[in-house]
């Protein structure tokens, strides 16, 4: 649970963040603040740096200039800081990244027992609670390879939730799914949003963005080009690049 004293500290503050892959400038002067409990949707063309941006927030990537502050702790090379952040920030990947050699339940309890030091029994109980929440408790003894994509992604969400994160990051969670499975995952995400989870979602699901986002951010070529409330963003985009992008994804 969030301390009362914590709730006015922004969940994420990025100030003048720059990152390069070799000499490719992938993030350019990123300034972004995410308030506690806020839901931010990030969109933009492929290769614009969306994944890189949210991977920087959980330190899967290093940034080279600027500062990133998560829940009041600065992300620098201090190992203790990084560990602390990683325990509070959950991440859901496009490719699910479930551990194929463990059952669904073991996927969820692994970090509970190793990181949170729960007993086997406690961990099982917590994991089952979250598997119920994503409506998949009956699959707990199966292996990820035996589940559909939508089921796997819901397990991945449950696995993150088990760690009781303050912030949940999503990197195109529905992009690898067959169309008929997208809504079962989005439903779970909507439910989470309604409970007040702080969320940063990279997604092109515009219905989802309209429904839950407090703010939509548009990225192009490593820059935040435009940000606005979903209503304004979709109905009155200001920037030419945003207009072009929206016309492309709304075409069909």
């Amino acid at each position: 649970m969030v301390d009362q004293s914590n709730s006015d500290i922004p969940a994420v503050t990025m100030t003048q963040v720059n990152k390069w892959y070799g000499d490719f400038h992938v993030l350019k002067d990123i300034n972004l603040q995410v308030a506690d409990g806020e839901k931010v949707v990030v969109c933009g063309p492929s290769g614009s740096g969306k994944s890189t941006l949210i991977r920087c927030i959980c330190k899967l990537e290093d940034h080279q200039r600027g500062t990133i502050n998560v829940l009041g702790t600065e992300l620098n090379d201090n190992i203790a800081n990084i560990d602390e952040i990683r325990r509070e920030v959950g991440m859901v990947f496009q490719q699910f990244n479930l551990f194929p050699h463990m059952t669904v339940l073991e996927n969820c309890t692994l970090a509970l027992t190793l990181v949170r030091k729960k007993s086997r029994k406690e961990a099982d109980a917590i994991a089952m609670q979250f598997l119920k929440k994503v409506r998949i408790p009956e699959q707990s003894t199966k292996y990820p390879g035996e589940l559909s994509g939508g089921q796997q992604q819901r397990v991945a969400i449950a696995r993150s939730l088990c760690m009781n994160p303050e912030i949940l990051l999503f990197d195109e969670p529905t992009s690898a799914l067959d169309p008929e499975m997208i809504s079962e995952v989005l439903d779970v995400m909507v439910a989470l949003a309604e409970e007040g989870m702080t969320m940063v979602c990279v997604t092109h699901e515009m219905g989802f963005a309209r429904r839950v986002a407090d703010r939509v951010i548009f990225m192009d070529e490593g820059e935040i080009v435009e940000q606005n409330s979903p209503q304004e963003f979709f109905d009155n985009p200001e920037n030419e690049r945003t207009k072009l992008f929206l016309s492309q994804i709304l075409q069909h």
Partner: peptide
Amino acid sequence: IPPGQDEAGLTLGLSYMQRVTRIQLPQAFR
């Protein structure tokens, strides 16, 4: 092993040794 496996372990807060013994080696042996 796809790099995403280790990244999933990282974001769950697992240490290097925990990722090696619980995620990497079992899959490498298989």
